[in-house]
Design a protein around this nucleic acid. Structure first.
Lengths: 351, 351
DNA sequence: TTGTAGGCGTTATCAT
DNA sequence: ATGATAACGCCTACAA
């Protein structure tokens, strides 16, 4: 008579890895005791403890973190969602976030949107399913109604699985006061750049780079305010938009320098853009800073080593990442709307 | 008569999030049916399907990815373990790995060792518990017996939970033929650098930078081979070790240039080191390339924009990350020992 | 100090 | 086409 098919042959196939029960069987104790030994809960007799340890060792037992996570035990991961990593600033930001996550026993997830909204949404959905503890979103899109609504959607959907959303590099969002924001004072930085140039006597100060992303909006606003401070007005012919890439910035800068009445100074969206300006200046044998002053943004590691050294706005990106992570993981009660200071680092490109 | 305490009041507190049963209850069907609708398995009547969808929507139901993962369903994450992110090369590598992971529906985990062995071990242990699908390890330590044993240990422990280990930036490991390795031809790159310099008539060619990491070993070996190719021999006074940081490289380069019989060319471990050499040359008013030729490694984005443009060894780091990820996720049957080509990019720093 | 017995949320099998 | 149910690996309230 064939043995009747084991009654409980349903559900998923069992894995081949050793589990708690296997360890218990080998040690001759109950699974509960093994659990107690491994988690360090309650009192277990030393002798028993040793037996269990030995059995676990022998079987090469590894606790299944997924099962633990499902029980609410185990730490949920922190996720950083960012356009890309093509910039030293993002790397530092990521480093800061990773440090906080790892140091507190969380896994660190990373995902790139490449500026694609659909991708961003897909990522958030996945993170929701995976029950991330928190999401740090470096949102780079244009800050319009639509974007605000999208963010509101993220906030809701993440909240529904008890995950925190932190907006990084984004200014305080009046329409969404409950979203934590961590930013650096990009407005103040760009403003300081213009004031710095104004003090050197420049009156035709251009702005080159992105103008329609969240960061760009702030930097452009700072530029405008700085002009006002310096007693100047915006000349729209001196505001040129280009992507945040050296090659494109180079082309745009050529146009700017070829104008009949070219600027004597350029405030760049980023150091990457500033490098494009350097290239254009070299093409036309325009002397920096003699005929053209240049200010970058981000104070990349290489800024000091360009010729001439690039004046740039330094911002604490590592800190920004770290503080975002702390907020996302609810490790802090600090203000949920952080604005870190930026600082102008004057070098030779502004004389 | 007080209702008897619910029998099954044990275990963890129930969560407040809607689960499959809630959806089933609201839709008036069984949990199994809900599962079928959501996973798209088997046939479900359109009417029922609609009811379920509606109920799920209304409750804001989000599948619990952890529970799915526990059943062997759902995709396990890919992890990149790397010393840090302080270098454009690592960022590219990470981008490549992330792209492959995300594109194939895997989460992308990242963790930094900061060159600390204990941390590396802790990270691997965690990844094991979390049942990562694969681990791409950028191992930066010295390649000695001890390191090989550590890696063997990782391989075993990861294999025990069915996870793949891929060594990235590491040459083929004869003692561990079963570990997949993805590398760029660092030896050939450094060798080409020396040959390039030799062809320009240089005979006193120094090496500056790390010499005891995995990458350094290869680059130094390439340097040695290149000298031989050029009919030269190693002068140990021209081999100076320093960390992979511009500040330290600057100091080390000063020593090198102050020698009574200084080198006429320096092969640097990295572009970061090369920048240190530039600084030292400026300090001493040594002309590059007139009095000193310099070659970097990695071909960082800024290399072309230094003055003079820095000759450097270009390596396909994005590709390296992507291929590592593919191997780690077992998406490919390609050779498990990949060696990608490098290329010398000649600029003004070598005349 | 240790064992017993659910139950976390999901999916697969069997039965209807 | 749908429902009932066991099972994944773990943890903990309760009983002994």
């Amino acid at each position: 008579m064939p043995e009747p098919r084991k009654r409980g042959a349903r559900g998923p196939a069992p894995t081949n890895e050793a589990n708690l029960r296997d360890v218990a069987a080998l040690a001759g104790v109950s699974p509960a005791t093994v659990s107690r030994v491994l988690t360090g809960t309650a009192g277990v007799r030393d002798e028993t403890r040793a037996k269990v340890r030995e059995a676990a060792e022998e079987l090469g037992y590894v606790a299944n973190g997924l099962a633990q996570a499902m029980l609410g035990r185990g730490r949920r991961p922190l996720a950083l969602v960012t356009p890309a990593l093509h910039d030293a600033a993002f790397s530092e930001l990521a480093s800061g976030a990773e440090e906080v996550a790892t140091h507190n026993g969380h896994l660190f997830l990373m995902a790139f949107t490449h500026g694609d909204v659909a991708r961003e949404e897909a990522i958030i959905a996945t993170l929701r399913e995976q029950r991330a503890a928190g999401v740090v979103l470096v949102h780079a899109g244009a800050p319009d109604k639509e974007a605000d609504q999208r963010i509101a959607g993220y906030l809701h959907s993440l909240a529904s699985v008890n995950a925190t959303l932190v907006l990084c590099g984004h200014p305080y969002l009046p329409s969404l006061p409950s979203v934590a924001t961590v930013n650096v004072d990009q407005i103040g930085g760009a403003r300081a750049a213009v004031i710095h140039l104004g003090a050197k006597g420049h009156r035709r100060i251009a702005f080159l780079g992105l103008t329609h992303s969240s960061a760009a909006n702030q930097r452009f606003l700072g530029y405008s305010l700085g002009l006002r401070d310096a007693g100047l007005t915006i000349d729209s012919s001196l505001v040129v938009e280009c992507p945040d890439e050296t090659v494109e910035a180079h082309l745009a800068a050529l146009l700017l320098l070829r104008k009949p009445d070219p600027p004597t100074a350029i405030v760049c969206f980023s150091d990457i853009v500033a490098v494009g300006v350097y290239r254009a200046a070299r093409d036309f044998h325009v002397d920096i800073p003699g005929q053209l002053a240049v200010v970058g943004f981000d104070d990349s590691p290489f800024a000091a080593d360009l010729t001439p050294g690039l004046t740039s706005i330094h911002a604490p990106f590592y800190d920004m990442g770290a503080r975002s992570a702390r907020l996302a993981l609810r490790l802090t009660d600090d203000d949920t709307h952080v604005d870190l200071p930026t600082e102008l680092v004057a070098r030779d490109s502004t004389g």
